[in-house]
């Protein structure tokens, strides 16, 4: 008789690794998305070029390839990252590149008159972004950000391939030790599904909160 309690415990340990990867990765992604998204709208050609290169590079190659490159090639240049650091970095930068396009699209969809009104009222650039543009652009970004967060959660499974003991890695261990395939893999599928459901619900609630008061302002 297999001691399932112990094995399930192993998977739960992995679930915490997956969760912290998702949270840290999302934080990096959010910062990267805003930096690159605003960078693409910059007045300076150099900043725009940098942002475009970043976005195209990370969207153009596979997350798996990026991860292996960071984990196996960077150490040869004397930059050694732990699997967790490499995972957070690659997940964050990869999803951030997708997020950057969302940020750019949302800001560009704020009507021109809003920008012009800010100039007419002599707002500084910071005030314009902080008080006028972002409050209108953020609700447009949120649904896609939610999807991106779920993509990030799903991408964390790839990190198991550079021997980080996340949920998928632990399931493989349980499979190797018990010979049972159905229980570990079904368990983690369900756990992943629960996590992604929680993410999409949470984003939905937050969206409701920040769009309060905007009813009727836009169609």
């Amino acid at each position: 008789m297999t001691d399932w309690a112990g094995y399930i415990g192993l998977i739960i340990d992995g679930a915490f690794v997956t969760l912290s990867l998702t949270l840290c990765g999302s934080a990096v992604a959010l910062v990267a998305a805003f930096l690159a998204g605003l960078g693409r709208l910059s007045r300076f050609t150099a900043v725009r070029a940098l942002a475009v290169t970043y976005v195209e590079f990370f969207r153009g190659t596979s997350i798996f390839v990026q991860l292996f490159w960071v984990y196996f090639v960077l150490p040869l240049f004397d930059i050694s990252l732990s699997p967790f650091q490499a995972g957070v970095l690659v997940l964050g930068l990869n999803v951030g590149a997708y997020g950057a396009e969302v940020v750019r699209g949302a800001i560009k969809s704020v009507p021109r008159e809003q920008f012009e009104a800010c100039i007419a009222l002599n707002f500084t650039q910071y005030q314009r972004m902080r008080y006028i543009i972002l409050p209108q652009a953020l609700p447009l970004m949120l649904p896609t950000f939610g999807n991106n967060a779920i993509e990030l959660l799903k991408a964390t499974a790839v990190v198991s391939l550079i021997s980080l003991s996340d949920m998928t890695f632990q399931a493989q261990i349980v499979r190797a030790q018990t010979g049972n395939t159905f229980v570990p893999f079904l368990t983690i599928l369900v756990l992943y599904f629960i996590m992604s459901t929680v993410i999409s619900r949470a984003i939905g609630l937050y969206e409701k909160r920040i769009t309060r008061g905007l009813d009727g302002v836009r169609s």
Partner: peptide
């Protein structure tokens, strides 16, 4: 559809590759 979209492809591949033979 929701379930497949909410879970990682890698795990689904493992599921097909390791569980179905059983």
């Amino acid at each position: 559809v929701e379930f497949i979209r909410g879970t990682p492809l890698l795990v689904q591949l493992y599921f097909i590759f390791y569980v179905l033979p059983d």
